[in-house]
Simulated scan of single mutants.
Amino acid sequence: MRVYKGIGSMTREPVARIEANGLTKHFAGIAAVDDVSFTVEPGSVTGFLGPNGAGKTTTLRMLLGLVRADRGWATIGGVEYRDLPAPLEVVGAALESTGFHPSRTGLDHLRIYTSAAALPASRAAAAIEAVGLSKARNRRVGAYSLGMRQRLALATALLGDPAVLILDEPANGLDPEGIVWLRSFLREYAATGRTVLVSSHVLTEMQQLVDRVVILHRGRVVQQATLAELAGTHGDLETAFFELTTGQEARR
């Protein structure tokens, strides 16, 4: 049974490569992101990994035009985010599961977004069904659990039926069943030819979800490889992560 069936009537090919080239950003004279370059290919799930403070969130915000780079550039489908004519139909992003009005229902939250973006109103119901919140669609968001808010954030990102998903810690707050559901959802989303970039600290889950990884450490890319390539040089993702970011093997 397919997890993702689409919520729109996409007529274009849903192909959009993410490219970052030399992204650099300083805060108070300190390089948070230093000459970061990588690509995320369509039809794949890429894990964006690194310790706290590695520069992941700043990089994601530069991809989405929320932070201006000091140097370098980033494109999605060959175009900078700020120049996309219909950004929500190209990129769906969920960088946090906050910002919801607690008195609105989940469905009303999505309806407001479809109205603001001039998207078909039917997308709200389709998106909330796609993330498994149909039974809670008329419940106020203030009564949602953290995991339900994560699903609502994903539903918001899906409203434009985008070619690209960029998600920051999407499994945070999900129970084991929800994590398995999310894994299947994202892999099937990528299987339709779309591009998925996921930032996470949960290495064991990334091992089961992603096709390739980009690992940051102290603002720089220290590895960009497929899981198969990592297996050949380090054994597994967890071992690779610790060796690349601490110089030590993971403790068993």
Rank of each mutant, 00 (worst) to 15 (best):
A190N: 09
R17K: 15
D35Y: 02
D168H: 06
A93H: 01
L95C: 05
Y113K: 14
T239K: 11
H109I: 04
R139L: 08
G178C: 03
F48W: 04
A126T: 12
G235M: 03
Q223F: 00
I30W: 07
L154N: 13
V15W: 10
P102D: 08
G77E: 06
L227I: 08
F242K: 08
A228Y: 00
V131L: 09
L152H: 10
P14Q: 12
P51E: 10
E243G: 09
G53V: 13
V164Q: 10
L237F: 00
F242L: 13
L244W: 03
R149V: 11
G65A: 07
L186A: 10
R111C: 05
L227V: 00
G72Y: 11
R139Q: 14
M62V: 03
S199W: 05
L84W: 01
T204Y: 00
G77W: 06
G50I: 12
P102R: 02
H234M: 02
F241R: 09
R61P: 02
L230R: 12
V198L: 04
R61D: 04
G55D: 08
S134H: 05
L107F: 04
D211K: 10
G29I: 08
F242Q: 08
G22Y: 09
Q208S: 12
E41C: 05
G232K: 08
A126L: 13
A231F: 00
R140C: 09
E80I: 07
G22E: 10
T156Y: 03
R17S: 10
A117F: 15
Q223I: 01
R2V: 06
A231Q: 14
A16E: 04
E243F: 00
R251D: 14
R252W: 14
I166R: 12
A190P: 08
I18W: 05
H101K: 00
G72K: 11
A116C: 12
S199Y: 06
L133K: 07
R2S: 13
L95W: 06
T39C: 11
A118E: 14
V67H: 02
T246N: 07
A94Y: 01
V141F: 11
P14T: 06
R104M: 14
L167D: 04
A116N: 04
T246M: 11
E188V: 11
L154A: 13
D236C: 10
V3M: 06
